[in-house]
Design a protein around this nucleic acid. Structure first.
Lengths: 119, 119
DNA sequence: AGTACAGGTTTACCGTGATAAACTAAAAAC
DNA sequence: GTTTTTAGTTTATCACGGTAAACCTGTACT
């Protein structure tokens, strides 16, 4: 709950769990072997480390996420904006949109979201 | 130009350079001592590592950035969007704006940028 | 001539994220 | 009842980011 910062390997691992949960732990070692090239013990080490941080839990050989993918995404976005763009969404967008073109559909979708987030 | 990925300490260091460049290297060691608590050799190690990667240069004891702050910011934004949001700005915004409110001024600024980026 | 300081380089330690070998205990299969 | 598989734990290695001590050379000052 506290520290949602996930390192690269941790995020890749959680990505698999978010997709497949709830998943049996032995099954998970097999998926990680295939998708990440990990040995069984590596997967169990990850499970232990992340369950210590309450990111996931492993009960009766069943692994389940305790935080949602969206929570982590939101956290990472906020950290990036805070650290690199002074917390300002407009500054972020000005930089991000340089040399980029949006489709009409994307633009419309975004305009709608902005409107809804305006007080 | 190649790898714009900056680690935390590297970014903090570049932040100082972007603010003060061009800056004399001895002067830089003093600023880093004060702002980051670094010893002189730490600053010179940083200078060497970053100049090997063409992030900055040190000529005649004068340190200058070779990449702009904006380039790095843009790069980091793109990596985040790519890795975490499937490269989709709308998905990013939907997540980021959850529970957030924008001021009228911000909203207007953003709407304008979106319009200009629409083909 | 001797000391101080500028402007570095060489070499190295330390923490920790990433990965895994080796071992164990219980349950299932043969 | 012996082998195999499940479901882990303990312990360790390795790479690398972060930091710095120690050393060195040239110039300027006294």
């Amino acid at each position: 709950m506290d520290d949602l910062k996930l390192f690269d390997a941790e995020y890749k691992f959680m990505d698999i769990i978010w997709e497949l949960e709830p998943i049996n732990s032995t099954e998970l070692t097999k998926v990680c072997r295939k998708k990440l090239g990990w040995k069984k013990s590596t997967t169990y080490t990850m499970i232990r480390k992340l369950s210590e941080r309450s990111i996931l839990k492993n009960e009766n050989a069943t692994v389940t996420a305790l935080v949602k993918r969206e929570e982590v995404q939101k956290y990472e976005s906020e950290v990036l904006l805070e650290d690199k763009f002074d917390g300002s969404l407009p500054i972020f967008l000005a930089t991000f949109l340089q040399d980029k073109k949006l489709s009409k559909a994307e633009a419309k979708e975004i305009q709608k979201m902005i409107e809804e987030a305006t007080k």
